[in-house]
């Protein structure tokens, strides 16, 4: 196991930093210097992570701090998300294509799937061989990896009381342990979809006014109903889909910029919420009390946050 860090932060200028939480302080270790424009980070295996940069996917070895392999996709557009599943790399490109690239045999031509225009998010379902996509005016789709076909398509949101069309802009997707999907929208809506039921509209939904949601995370082995979301204006909300109320259970305050990524982390045997925001800060909130435990200035503009798996 080479993950000696509690978390890894990726910056927009290509810098990578490992973060350790020690004695109420963040300790940083430089992994990679600024060189390329970084779009996304994801876990490859125990000692490697995938860095996506424009049209390239790079494997980064955490042990000797070097790039080990490089994959290039032939698409016009930037990669918005990558993940590894069953010896295949799956990358979503923002022109709407999903590229399936086998890792070992480089000669085999990679498969391509069209997932509709303006793709903005692609996520894997951890327990099954499936993945989900979504984007601007492109509601949630759940795909089967083997057949390459759509299994579930969400309906676009219900028109309002004046029968006017409501916008739909998926920003992030996550899955609960019971395979229900949570979708956060840029227009301030979080939806809970049940792919097994016949209902294509959301089973439950929560709303916030005057903000949009950027990042989303489900609680790790906590419950199948709770979720934390980061907003464009710097709040982190904790939502619960049980019950009738659509207001947040809790708010984690402190940030003045858009929350790029949130995650749950165990620190001092207590659940904490770790977040990076565009005002160049890392923050750690206590989950049960909601108070800010630590924050630090990290100079660069952070893009992605990876927590030790």
């Amino acid at each position: 196991m080479d993950w000696t860090y509690d978390a890894i932060i990726g910056f927009s200028n290509g810098m990578l930093k490992g973060v350790e939480l020690k004695n109420n302080k963040f300790k940083y270790i430089n992994l990679l210097d600024a060189s390329l424009t970084l779009n996304n980070l994801s876990v490859y295996d125990e000692s490697k992570i995938i860095i996506s940069s424009k049209r390239k996917m790079l494997l980064f070895d955490l042990k000797n701090k070097k790039m080990s392999k490089k994959y290039i996709i032939r698409e016009s557009g930037n990669i918005i998300g990558v993940f590894k599943k069953n010896n295949v790399l799956i990358a979503g490109v923002n022109n709407g294509m999903v590229v399936v690239k086998p890792i070992k045999q480089s000669k085999i031509v990679s498969e391509k799937l069209s997932a509709g225009s303006h793709l903005s998010c692609i996520r894997e379902v951890l327990t099954l061989d499936k993945f989900a996509t979504g984007g601007n005016e492109n509601p949630l789709k759940i795909w089967d990896l083997e057949t390459g076909k759509v299994e579930f398509t969400a309906k676009s949101p219900k028109p309002d009381m004046l029968q006017l069309k409501l916008p739909c802009y998926v920003s992030d997707i996550q899955f609960f342990n019971n395979n229900k999907a949570v979708v956060s929208h840029r227009h301030g809506v979080v939806d809970l979809h049940d792919p097994l039921s016949s209902q294509r509209r959301p089973v439950a939904s929560c709303k916030a006014e005057n903000t949009g949601f950027v990042s989303l995370r489900t609680m790790p082995d906590y419950s199948d109903y709770e979720v934390i979301v980061g907003t464009t204006k710097g709040n982190i909300f904790h939502y619960d889909f049980r019950g009738k109320f659509t207001l947040p259970v809790k708010t984690f305050r402190g940030s003045t910029g858009s929350v790029k990524s949130v995650s749950c982390i165990n620190y001092l045997d207590q659940m904490h919420v770790m977040s990076i925001s565009l005002d160049c800060h890392v923050r750690l909130h206590n989950f049960s009390s909601g108070k800010l435990t630590m924050q630090d200035y990290i100079v660069g503009k952070p893009v992605a946050l990876l927590i030790k798996p």
């Binding site: 802009y169 840029r186 227009h187 949009g212 950027v214 464009t232 204006k233 710097g234 003045t256 910029g257 858009s258 790029k260 565009l278 005002d279």
Partner: peptide
């Protein structure tokens, strides 16, 4: 103004 991400607001 609707969907944009703010660095500081």
């Amino acid at each position: 103004p609707k969907c944009g991400e703010y660095r500081w607001i």
